Amino acid sequence: MNPTVVLVHGAMHTPWIFDPLRERLTALGIASRAVQLPSSNPDSAAAKGLTEDVAQVRAEIQGVEGPVVLAAHSYGGVPATWAAAEEDRVTELVYIAAFALEVGVSMREWMGGDFPPTWIQSADGLAVKAGDAEQSIFSGVDPVLTAEAVKRLNWQGMRAFTEKLGAAPTDVPLTYVVATEDPALPPALQEQWAARAAHSLRVPSGHSPHLSHADEVAALLAQAVARAER
């Protein structure tokens, strides 16, 4: 079976965010699918947590025939890390400016216990949303695409940040895409995570390289697929 790229979006996003990247993968003859994480929801009360996200990523992997290249952006790196530890069909884990946390650490702990001051909390206290997404998440992205992406942002469930990472793979090769101009996730930290990876790529991008540098990210995923085929 040919490998499939399974894409995991970041906090507040939907699978739509990967449409430009998936178009390029299709043009390269590569099958892909994108997960909708339960932690991201237009209704703050319905937004779930990390454990539900992991279950959804695992279900997506199990729904694929053949090997899987699992690629995740930002927060999506957390459920993807856990899922890759549980699913032996994953041949490579690709972090796209994504969090590669240690087991036992939560996003909230990594953030120092607090959210960025520009984030908005829902009235029910169950979810958060970035208030400065144009600058923090979509810097360097085409303005028309940015406007559409901001319009589509959801609430992100609080438990996505408070639940701790339960597992990480020990035998799955890692690839890291470092966004060298990322205002949201410090590039120096991304470099630390990239140093542990078997393969890495640096792009002069803000926090969304899959949007601003979709060709380069697609080419990197094509290389991961080629390795899976071997």
Rank of each mutant, 00 (worst) to 15 (best):
Y95Q: 08
F18D: 00
H13Q: 10
P187H: 11
I17A: 07
G206K: 05
A218V: 15
A55N: 07
V225C: 14
V150A: 11
V8F: 02
Q56S: 15
Q121F: 01
H9C: 01
G140S: 07
A188R: 14
E92A: 08
G140D: 06
Q190S: 14
L220E: 15
L185W: 07
A11G: 15
V90H: 03
K48I: 00
Q135I: 04
T14I: 00
E216D: 15
A133G: 04
T81H: 02
S39T: 11
A85N: 05
D171L: 01
W82F: 03
L211S: 09
F161M: 11
E216I: 14
W82D: 15
M12E: 09
Q135A: 12
P3F: 02
Y176S: 10
A226K: 15
A130C: 06
T162H: 05
P209W: 14
R108P: 00
L28D: 11
M158Q: 07
E229S: 15
P169E: 11
P204A: 14
W16S: 06
A11E: 01
R159C: 02
A83W: 02
A160S: 15
T51K: 09
A226T: 15
G76D: 11
V177P: 11
S44Q: 06
A179P: 05
P186C: 01
G157M: 04
D53A: 05
L185V: 13
I61F: 10
H199E: 13
A97G: 12
L126S: 12
P3G: 14
Y176P: 08
D53P: 07
E148K: 13
H213P: 13
T118M: 01
E109T: 12
P3Y: 02
V90N: 02
G10C: 01
H73C: 11
P79T: 10
W155Y: 06
V8C: 06
A167W: 08
V203T: 14
A98K: 01
A219N: 13
F138C: 09
E102P: 11
T180F: 05
E216Y: 09
L101P: 07
D142H: 12
P42M: 08
L153Q: 09
M158G: 04
L28R: 15
V105N: 00
A55V: 12
A85E: 05
A188I: 03
V6M: 02
I61R: 10
S44G: 04
G77P: 09
E134M: 07
S139A: 14
A34F: 03
V69R: 10
L93I: 09
Q121P: 00
A147I: 03
T4C: 06
H13K: 00
E134I: 05
I120L: 12
A45H: 05
L145I: 13
L50F: 04
L165I: 06
T81E: 04
R33M: 09
D19G: 00
V57D: 12
K48G: 14
Y176G: 09
G104L: 05
W155E: 03
S212Y: 13
H199I: 01
A72K: 10
A133V: 04
S136D: 04
V141T: 05
T81V: 08
W193Y: 14
P187L: 04
A147P: 06
N41Q: 08
A127H: 04
M1T: 07
G10Q: 00
A72E: 10
R33E: 09
R24M: 08
A97C: 12
A11T: 01
L21T: 00
A72T: 09
P169A: 08
V105A: 00
